[in-house]
Amino acid sequence: MFGDIPGLASPFAELRRLEQELDEMFGSTVWSGGIRSLPPGTFPAVNVGTTPDKVAVYLFAPGIDPKTLEITLQQNLLSISGRREVPVEQNATYYRKERFSGEFRRVISLPEDVEPDRVDAKYTDGVVQITVQRRAAAQPRQIEIH
């Protein structure tokens, strides 16, 4: 209804949508469009980086109690679930409530060569860092020429 009023629809919204679509199409990451992928903006945001010997997963989850996090790794499927409580101030008028509150769950496919029993997790400044070691066989070997 209001979309018909000239000057009201933001031209930037269309640009943003286009950018998102392009990202999903060309895969600025190999993951976009994955069957378990979640729409952009889902809490918590996740970055994944790899080196030849390990995979590091960064979860941007500020203000959570790390003890309530449940992290499981089944073969190469990493599941993280937890809850974020955002305390509500009594007798206050809220103008903005943009921060996520409630339960969350993310499932991430890691490379196939991770070792599920060699996982390490820590929480610093609101970021959960999960490091999983990869199997030695997958690491590139230097072949010497005699």
């Binding site: 970055n47 080196t51 490379p111």
Partner: peptide
């Protein structure tokens, strides 16, 4: 400014941020 602990030669597999 956010600072993450990153290893050398790390390649991005996925980045929301």
């Amino acid at each position: 400014t956010a600072q993450l602990e990153l290893a050398d030669q790390m390649q991005a597999l996925h980045a929301d941020v």
